[in-house]
């Protein structure tokens, strides 16, 4: 029985040959910052439809790892969304798109 180390090293001398874990490439699209690419310099807090795109169904702000925006614009977007919520153009929470 090939010991685990041998299997780990991928030696195939043992009678049980374990398939090497097949590499499933989840096609990793390169995430980009939509603000830098489209050249938006100022995120306006007065148009809620644009800001709805940065918010999930419960109305929470989407994190950078999902949207891929850069830190500078994520902060601007967060400030804009909070201001928009303050003047009641956007809900604080609620089932938005359902």
């Amino acid at each position: 029985m090939a010991t685990l180390q041998q299997q780990a090293k991928g030696k195939k001398d043992g009678d049980i040959r374990y398939l090497s874990p097949l590499k499933i490439e989840t096609q990793e699209r390169k995430k980009y910052c939509r603000f830098q690419r489209s050249g938006i310099k100022y995120i306006d807090y007065k148009d809620p439809d644009f800001l709805m795109g940065l918010v999930n169904e419960q109305g929470k702000i989407l994190p950078r790892r999902l949207t891929g925006t850069s830190l500078k614009y994520q902060r601007k977007a967060a400030v804009a969304i909070k201001r928009c919520r303050h003047i009641a153009l956007m809900p604080f929470e609620g089932d938005l798109l359902k």
Partner: peptide, 19 residues
């Protein structure tokens, strides 16, 4: 009922004109 005063930087001013 509610008010919000915001200071505009140069990008915001340019955006306001465009809008």
């Amino acid at each position: 009922m509610r008010y919000l005063t915001v200071r505009l930087d140069k990008y915001a001013i340019e955006w306001a004109e465009k809008r």
